[in-house]
Design a protein around this nucleic acid. Structure first.
Lengths: 221, 221
DNA sequence: TTCTCCAAAAATATCGATATTTATTGACAT
DNA sequence: ATGTCAATAAATATCGATATTTTTGGAGAA
């Protein structure tokens, strides 16, 4: 516990804090793909002990964001066009499945959450990228959240994050795309609410593939 | 390093050793699903320190074999019929995809590895279950090993392991099934070598679904 | 030069001890 | 009886130090 403004603040565990920070740094490229991740160095950066750092790195291994090298420590997972394309293809397969299942199980409660997630994303649109990114992920996960298949949802979330990394990589040296992404979102939402599996899935996949093509063009790795 | 018969034996790291042992114990049910996994207790069991145990448990979390509970340690992942059915369904989707890709990329080298894997599995057939289990997994993974999609292959391997656990759970109180499983394997192999995607996939999925039905009957969780 | 081998340095993996947090127990009030 | 609360016990999370392992750098041989 610590005190801020006389209010008790339950701090997240050191491990979890390290996990969140490192994850963010890898996703945004602050820790470049392929880079060696030295415990001592990170220990300093995160202001914590070696144990939490090691454990956070272990956890990031599950997320495929960090690789463990035999007895030689850790490194940020390498990035490549092939890897990006694999992620894109897998996402299309798995999200297609998850979205269809979500729609099959459609319920008013799910619909409402979906509408709200979309609303929040629209509101966050102008503001700082960070906030929008969060809302964007929540919207996409809300689409899949009714699939009744927790493992599938987990995989989709994981692949979503892996994909984000490539967005940041491409953003490094780009002229920003001027597709009407928000119109695409509206269309996906509309089709989902109408419970039209084929249309919703087609639009979702097109949304991903358009972004994919754009990223493939920008990436030089 | 340690010496056995005057031969230097490179010991696997304590973490890796703990990982392998714990994994085996969870898969076979020596550590029952849902059970609390106390560090001290495992530390004694595995004859090692707390750090390797913690790290092994972290790694098993990636494999969905262990769950981390907030600040209350770890437990073996719970098992349920719903979970089993989800795993079965996902395996069918993902292995279908991986097998088709493998066949699309078919090469003599892959074919040969496949034939060998099948051969080894047949030879291991009578012998101790452990050896056959290993060969069986290798055969199934060999089918998918040419998909050129490492993430997909990894997911399939993970789901394969999750499924094994249910085989052991069902085996606890069962009359052994007398399906001609080896004939099913032959048919899958044959179709794959003939590069017939539809037939190979249909047979593979039928193989899984038959086992699935059988397990669903036997399971009482 | 290029290669091999050995010491020095750096980094990782592991241990044992301590600080925190969570779970348990039993006394006390209702 | 039943429920609450504090004290105790148990377990987890974290630290600092040590033992191993890998990497580096350079001396000497081919």
């Amino acid at each position: 516990m610590s005190m801020i403004d006389g209010t008790r603040v339950k701090e997240t565990s050191a491990t979890h804090g390290a996990y969140v920070t490192l994850r963010e740094m890898i996703l945004t490229g602050a820790l470049p793909a392929g880079e060696k991740l030295k415990i001592e160095q990170l220990r300093g950066l995160l202001n914590t002990g070696a144990s939490p750092v090691r454990e956070a790195l272990s956890l990031l291994t599950s997320d495929m964001l960090v690789e463990r090298i035999d007895q030689r420590g850790f490194r940020a997972a390498p990035a490549s066009k092939a890897n990006f394309e694999e992620i894109l293809a897998l996402r299309c397969t798995l999200e297609d499945l998850a979205l269809r299942q979500s729609i099959q199980n459609a319920s008013p409660a799910w619909e409402e959450k979906l509408v709200l997630a979309h609303h929040h994303m629209k509101k966050a649109s102008g503001q700082g990228t960070k906030l929008f990114e969060e809302a964007h992920k929540k919207f996409h996960m809300a689409l899949l959240a009714n699939s009744h298949s927790p493992i599938l949802e987990r995989l989709c979330a994981q692949l979503y994050d892996l994909n984000i990394r490539y967005r940041y990589l491409a953003a490094k040296s780009n002229t920003y795309q001027k597709r009407d992404v928000s119109a695409e979102h509206e269309e996906i939402l509309e089709a989902a609410i109408q419970r039209d599996q084929d249309r919703a899935s087609a639009r979702l996949l097109s949304h991903y593939r358009l972004t994919g093509e754009y990223l493939t063009r920008e990436l030089d790795i």
